[in-house]
């Protein structure tokens, strides 16, 4: 479903991705772990067609990037730690706007379903600027799935959420991913990653350093797997994911 080969991304003289190889099969939920500055967000931005690779090949849903970016975008939903919503529009208006850009059929009904899914049925007509951070993030999930994408890219979706909002986001993400969507999620929250993901890849210094499936990692063993993977290259940063 997603394939990256020998991916390189440079910003001036600095290489952020250095020959990264990455494969995701249909229906997998991959947790992309790594310390700050490892290149996780840059990699997701390339998969989302928001940035161009300096070198290498990327294919998403059978379409290559950046040449077939429009086809890729139609099949992709993106959720980041910023909600990408307009605070001066209501929740419904935000979904209407993005639904129009994706040419969603039967939009009013779709918006009702999506608002129900993210638990915002009663708040759809309120301005987004009156929402709490957790509500904004739930509406952001609604924005990301309004066009029923096959692939979801989640870039640290729990950043800035309190415990209750995170638990609510867990529920929504489980529902959203329950029907066979392919998901790639970057996260610093190893407990949540272990709970949600079917595979864990550790990205450090622009490369995938280690990969393990959920079966290969014992319960509560993701922290140890992560520490082992990162400490070989960055001994001082292995604890960056604590918590």
């Amino acid at each position: 479903m997603i394939s990256a080969r020998n991916l390189v991304k440079r910003f001036g003289l600095k290489s952020v991705l250095r020959g990264l190889d990455f494969e995701v099969a249909e229906g997998e939920f991959v947790g992309l772990l790594g310390p700050n500055g490892a290149g996780k967000t840059t990699f997701l931005r390339i998969l989302a067609s928001l940035a161009r690779p300096s070198l290498g090949r990327v294919e998403v849903a059978g379409f290559s990037l950046p040449e077939q970016a429009a086809q890729v975008r139609r099949r992709l939903g993106v959720l980041s730690h910023q909600p990408l919503l307009y605070p001066d529009l209501t929740g419904e208006e935000n979904l209407t706007f993005f639904g129009r850009l994706y040419n969603v059929q039967n939009l009013p009904e779709r918006i009702r379903n999506v608002l129900a899914l993210v638990g915002l049925e009663g708040r759809g007509r309120d301005l987004v600027r009156t929402y709490s951070r957790g509500m904004q993030q739930r509406l952001a999930i609604g924005r990301a799935v309004i066009h029923d994408p096959d692939i979801l890219l989640l870039d640290e979706p729990y950043t800035g959420l309190d415990q209750d909002a995170s638990a609510m986001l867990d529920d929504v993400l489980r529902k959203v991913t329950a029907e066979g969507r392919t998901v790639v999620m970057t996260s610093h929250d190893l407990v949540r990653a272990q709970d949600l993901c079917s595979r864990f890849d550790v990205l450090t210094r622009g490369r995938i350093l280690a990969s393990a499936s959920r079966q290969d990692v014992p319960p509560d063993g993701l922290q140890a797997f992560y520490r082992r993977s990162v400490s070989s290259l960055e001994p001082g940063r292995a604890g960056a994911h604590d918590g």
Partner: peptide
């Protein structure tokens, strides 16, 4: 409640004018 609709094919692309007016 499910969010994924029955049809797997993505919607046809929106026209230039429609997307412009949406903005």
């Amino acid at each position: 409640m499910t969010v994924k609709s029955a049809a797997k094919r993505p919607a046809p692309p929106v026209s230039f004018l429609s997307s412009m007016w949406a903005v």
